[in-house]
Write a protein that binds this DNA or RNA. Structure first.
Length: 261
DNA sequence: TTGATTGTTACCGG
DNA sequence: TCCGGTAACAATCA
C-alpha cells in the first residue's frame, strides 16, 4: 500500500480535516502508549509528509510520527465512531472525522529535536516543492551502487517504492543495474521528473498509474502498470527479466533498457 | 491455513 | 566509511 503518494495524499486530506482542531488521541487496544496521553486535547497545527513518513504537528511543539511500513493502513471514518477494525494502534478524533492507523512500523511522539533529525536523514522528496534534487544527484553520481537500489534508498531520495522503481526505470529506458556513477545529470533529471509526475498522478487518483491514459477506476492495478509483475514487455513483447535487489522484486526489459555504460 | 506483500532498521563482515 | 547481506518486525488479503 504505502509508497510516497499514499502518504502525501493522506497528509493533504488529514490537514484539511484536522488542522485547527483539538484532537482527542486514543489507543483502542492500548498498544500505542508511548507519549500518546501527552497529545490528547492538543491543537493540531498541520499535517505533512516527508517521503513515506507522515507527521502531525501540535501546538505544543510535539509531533506524531507515523510510518506505515509494508503493511500499515490508514482508514478514515465519519463520526459517530464505529468500532475499530483490526489492529488499530492509534485513533485521531476530530469533530467530524476520525483517523485510524493500523499496523504502522512507526507510531511515535517526537519532540522538536527528534523531528529535525528525522527530516535531516531523509533525502529530497520528489513530491515536496522544497526538495533539492542536487543533493540526490551528488550521492548517486559518487556511488558505484546500482541505480535500482539508489532511487529507492530513502536517505538518497524519498518517495519511490518498489513498484515505482521498476516502472520509472522502464519508462526512462534505464537498466536498474547501471552504477550510480554512470548516470549523467541529464539522465538523473529524467528520473526525478518522471518520479515527480507519476507520484503526483498517484496522489490525485489514490492509485499507482504509470501507463499513459490509464483510468484508475477500471480494473486492478495490473492494468495500470507497464512491467511490474508482468511477464512480457508491452512495447517490444520480449520477456521481462525478474530479479531481486535487497530481497525486493525488480523487473527489467533487457531490450528496452539495455545495460550500457 | 499458507504464503506473499507498494518497508525500514539494526547489525555484521568485507 | 561504504556497501551488501541477513533477520526481525508488522497486518492483511487471496
Amino acid at each position: 500500500m504505502p509508497e510516497g503518494h499514499t502518504i502525501h495524499r493522506a497528509a493533504l486530506d488529514h490537514h484539511r480535516i484536522m488542522a485547527g482542531q483539538k484532537l482527542m488521541v486514543c489507543s483502542p487496544q492500548g498498544r500505542f502508549t508511548e507519549g500518546a496521553s501527552r497529545l490528547s486535547g492538543q491543537l493540531c497545527n498541520a499535517v505533512e509528509a516527508f517521503g513515506k513518513h507522515l507527521i502531525y504537528h501540535f501546538n505544543s511543539g510535539d509531533a506524531l510520527h507515523v510510518h506505515l511500513g509494508l503493511f500499515g493502513r490508514i482508514r478514515k471514518h465519519k463520526l459517530p465512531l464505529s468500532e475499530p477494525r483490526g489492529a488499530v494502534r492509534v485513533r485521531l478524533v476530530g469533530n467530524k472525522h476520525a483517523i485510524d492507523i493500523n499496523g504502522p512500523t512507526i507510531c511515535k511522539v517526537l519532540c522538536g529535536d527528534e523531528f529535525v533529525k528525522l527530516t535531516q536523514r531523509l533525502g529530497p522528496d520528489v513530491l515536496r516543492s522544497d526538495a533539492n534534487p542536487d543533493l540526490a544527484f551528488k550521492k548517486i553520481s559518487n556511488s558505484k551502487t546500482q541505480i535500482g537500489r539508489l532511487i529507492m534508498d530513502q536517505s538518497i531520495m524519498s518517495g519511490i517504492g518498489n513498484i515505482y522503481r521498476s516502472e520509472i526505470l522502464w519508462r526512462q529506458s534505464i537498466h536498474p543495474e547501471t552504477p550510480g556513477r554512470a548516470i549523467s545529470r541529464q539522465t538523473f533529471d529524467r528520473i526525478w521528473e518522471d518520479a515527480k509526475e507519476l507520484l503526483n498522478i498517484g496522489v490525485q487518483h489514490n492509485a499507482i498509474i504509470t501507463v499513459e491514459g490509464a483510468r484508475p477506476s477500471k480494473g486492478r492495478y495490473r492494468e495500470r502498470v507497464n512491467i511490474f509483475s508482468k511477464s512480457t514487455c508491452p512495447v517490444c513483447k520480449e520477456p521481462i527479466r525478474r530479479f531481486e535487489i535487497s530481497g525486493r522484486r525488480v523487473f527489467v526489459c533487457e531490450k528496452c533498457q539495455p545495460l550500457a555504460y
